[in-house]
Design a binder for these strands. Structure first.
Lengths: 366, 366
DNA sequence: ATGAAAGCGCTAACAT
DNA sequence: ATGTTAGCGCTTTCAT
């Protein structure tokens, strides 16, 4: 009955082909294969056989046209090559697969224009929802548009002022206070901090020192929030903040972090401790320390935000703030899928804990 | 003229809405917005305005139904949390974005069943092509199916016997010969190797030693190929291979790598050097060495396959084989997109170079 | 250069 | 329980 010749690349079988082969209507074939509506068990089996014989594969595109759902999640991260996003993405991917979703991945490189473009592309592809680590906490009209257009958004790691969306966050300010508090408690009085401070609001940090009111944390990027924690820890301990110890790189970039670290270490008097606000900053700062032959912790105590596996490889092991990054990705995907299933519910903010792991890179200053 | 009320979530505008707003037919609106066919410039502008006013976004699904192309690439890697795949994915993503493609990412966890399922899902989603790091070099009927069905496949990092597809590979055997040759030239005669050796054919390595004919490299996984290079280097140097120094973990897993390393270091006489075949093995092996307080390179020379940033953080720096991972991802995407544009061409195999970076972790045995 | 109509592959109403 | 019909949003003939 098969009329097509044995050419190597024949037209893919459609549900109509399967229906004809099984001697039923396309609708019935669809019901049998798609597990919806009513089908006699005997027919179902016959259709299955026919589908098998023809090597039939349903076309999700056509299905999505009708159902309005693609079972696809869009993800916009800064850079998948960064271990932070790689781990988070793994968490997202695991939950997505478990619940029958695919994931479209895009990189924004911390650029709002690229992020906007990426979100636009995802919307055109009709993703069911979007998980995003926004490049800016204020410039987010494209995210608001998406939500208004009916595509839910979940914020990962970074908040956005004025966007009522689910979010998975950590308390960067608090964690930073803990880390810097640890150094202050050890007796450090000159603590350098290496941070991106890339956005306009993050760059207003000089105003935060000694200010009556703290800035709105929701307007800050993680690096800004972590600097805020640094300042708060100092003020709580009654230790004055030396602005020269606060080094902004202006970009996510180990090379600049190295330069800024070298610059701060040349100060007179030099810092007795250094705090880096994420793995990229840590990378550059640690390189700088090594290139100068600085002894850790005798000459300089070192605390890093983000725990990396190599921090137990080096001597001494590095004291670090450990974030549950994989779990953050999982939580984001779970929040999104929950919302897809029950759209009405109030946005919820999931706050995960960061823990300080004290290792050998911190001691009292000498 | 806008008749819809200001409800927060109105139906998304379609091309018909835009057409009506602009006072033209849907076909013309499509031509104006989609840059195909002929449209008077004046009309084009009018349609653009209407689209803008309605916040129109084309529906890629509908477009793909007709054109048969989704402008989407499917990627199946083992684990995006592994820095190797994360870098490769970044390369793929950069090229894809440049050429107007999206990327759907899935993890196979080195499991052929999961890989098969992932490929099936990607085909249902009608991806234009698939980039895959196959979990098995022999069990690949699903990949053959994809190609026969008209969806091109590009192999990344791992070859598949009997699949005529584009591939981006490195010479694992040769690179491994170089690395082990370096150790042999220094005078090492007892070199341990830590490798996955997960597949059936990789586990046949005892037959390779002193064999007349080498096994078919295309049937081996990278870890098997690297072990083969190890054996070849020994035979070229006339140094006998001690099978007790060859440690297979059976899985991608730092914990097992650590155990195997501890076991091999307990041998009498112990190895004077160790070679790890990828970053996961390196992770476990390095932990093992640290936990025993072994001095590198005085007690043990250390060579790693895959260069990681931390290898210049530790003391001494680790001698490593560096692969151009990001470029491999780029090349894979470029091969795939080239094939999408000119389907007829012969499959090409892109072989990238691996370089040995000699650092402080290797010296002559004492 | 534009419009009318057909149709991609599938599912959702509506019959029966 | 099954078939018929309509239609998702768009592009592509085929007219004019």
């Amino acid at each position: 009955m098969a009329s097509s010749p044995m050419n190597t690349e024949r037209r893919r079988a459609t549900i109509a082909d399967v229906a004809k082969e099984a001697g039923v209507s396309a609708a019935t074939a669809g019901r049998a294969l798609g597990d919806y509506g009513y089908v006699r068990e005997e027919i179902r089996e016959r259709v299955r056989k026919a589908a098998e014989a023809l090597g039939y594969r349903p076309n999700s595109l056509a299905r999505s046209m009708i159902t309005g759902r693609t079972n696809t999640i869009g993800v916009v991260g800064a850079d998948i090559a960064n271990p932070f996003f790689a781990s988070a993405m793994r968490g997202i991917g695991d939950v997505a697969r478990r619940d029958g979703f695919g994931t479209i991945l895009t990189n924004s490189d911390e650029d709002v224009a690229l992020e906007r473009e990426a979100v636009g592309l995802l919307l055109q592809k009709q993703v069911d929802g979007i998980i995003v680590s926004p490049a800016s906490p204020v410039d987010a009209d494209h995210l608001i548009d998406a939500v208004q257009g009916g595509t839910p958004v979940v914020l990962l790691d970074r908040d956005v002022a004025g966007l009522a969306a689910d979010a998975v966050l950590t308390d960067s300010v608090g964690a930073s206070r803990t880390a810097v508090g640890h150094l202050l408690a050890l007796g450090h009085r000159r603590i350098a901090i290496i941070a991106e401070l890339r956005t306009a609001l993050d760059k207003e940090w000089p105003n935060w020192i000694g200010a009556a009111a703290a800035p709105d944390v929701r307007m800050l990027m993680p690096s800004g929030a972590r600097l805020l924690g640094y300042i708060q820890a100092h003020e709580a301990a009654g230790v004055p903040v030396d602005p020269r110890l606060i080094r902004g790189t202006g970009s996510y970039d180990p090379a600049t972090a190295r330069e800024q670290t070298l610059a701060t270490l040349r100060l007179d008097p030099p810092p007795s401790a250094i705090f880096t606000v994420d793995n990229v900053m840590t990378h550059g700062a640690y390189q700088a320390c090594r290139s100068l032959g600085i002894r850790i912790p005798e000459d300089l105590s070192f605390v890093a935000y983000d725990d990396m596996e190599w921090m137990t490889f080096v001597e001494p092991n590095i004291t670090a703030l450990s974030q549950p990054v994989y779990e953050m990705g999982k939580a984001a995907a779970e929040l999104l899928i929950r919302r897809l299933r029950s759209p009405g519910i109030e946005p919820s903010r999931c706050l995960l804990d960061t823990t300080l792991i004290v290792r050998g890179s911190t001691m009292a200053p000498r």
